[in-house]
Design a protein around this nucleic acid. Structure first.
Ligand SMILES: [Mn+2]
Ligand SMILES: [Mn+2]
Ligand SMILES: [Zn+2]
Ligand SMILES: [Zn+2]
Lengths: 162, 162
DNA sequence: TTTGTACTGCAATATTATTGCAATAGTAAA
DNA sequence: TTTACTATTGCAATAATATTGCAGTACAAA
């Protein structure tokens, strides 16, 4: 849940250790995320800072978020976003007549090829997680990023996706 | 991988069964997705159709995708999109000094609260999936959507997220 | 303090998504 | 077939999100 106040310092210090500078905009963004109970978009961060009388340009916020993400200090929340890349459901394990609509995708970061897979162990994980966290799970989404068989083979040259 | 040509008809027929009309724009979008090896954005679909001499307005494409998604005929690919909602890494299982940066999130669709969880069984699933599909997994991202303990309780009134 | 440069802010532009409303075209019934 | 109903589309306007180049600023080390 809520982070300790010191966590801002821990995060900023982690950046400094890696050679980054501790700047006022970076401090403000980390503090803002540290304070918030919910995930925030770049513009939400900017607006909230502005409401506190602090002005940080949106471009800077984008660059700061990128930096924080690269250094594993923040993560993105995907399911609640709105940009969409769509694909037909897999014909084989077609969802048409199923009650559960699970989406487990293997995504090749090289050629963009996407394969839908079954994850037999997921049901158990869902139940476990729900029980541990007292959380009612309505749906889930799992994606793997990596290299498909083709792109993995050493003799395969780069593809211009599709 | 590639879908059969008839799959377009199967999908459109499934819509009709539910009372939707089979229109030319809907047919074109489904055919386009059916043809493509990779996931496409709304604008990519429009541009590709236009290159084939077919004109479908972007707004229509958005509405068609929404319809297809609601009826489980397509799914979204999330990891390759760019809209971002960000959150600080959890302080407890902090990623700072870890080699693996897993992101397993419980997201409350009511209040927006997000909890990061460990999924002990995931490693096995990753290995299994990678082996079955001959896929090199570099990272993965798992999200659960549902209700947190608070929002789940009957006496809890709706929250205006944060 | 001084100095090098990492970083920020601004301006311009690109990409992605939504809303209201009038016109169109699928569908079922006549 | 034709008619009539209305689901669906297209257009126009606007909102929301993201990226690029460059000049100026401020952080951090000497
Ligand atoms: Mn699916
Ligand atoms: Mn995480
Ligand atoms: Zn590939
Ligand atoms: Zn909640």
């Amino acid at each position: 849940m809520s982070h300790t106040k010191k966590y801002t310092e821990v995060a900023l210090h982690a950046l400094k250790e890696k050679g980054y500078r501790i700047t006022k905009p970076r401090r403000l963004v980390v503090e803002m995320l540290n304070t918030s109970d919910i995930a925030l978009s770049a513009y939400e961060i900017r607006d909230r800072l502005e409401a506190e009388g602090e002005k940080v340009d949106k471009v800077s916020i984008y660059r700061i978020l990128e930096c924080l993400e690269e250094n594993h200090l923040i993560h993105r929340v995907l399911m609640t976003g709105k940009v969409r890349k769509c694909q037909l459901e897999d014909e084989d394990h077609c969802h048409l007549n199923q009650a559960d609509h699970c989406h487990h995708l293997l995504i090749c970061e090289q050629c963009g090829f996407i394969e839908e897979v079954h994850c037999p162990g997921m049901n158990r994980i869902v139940q476990q997680v729900a029980e541990d966290a007292q959380f009612t799970v309505k749906s889930h989404h799992l994606e793997f990023l990596g290299l498909c068989q083709k792109c993995n083979s050493p003799h395969h040259k780069k593809t211009a996706a599709n």
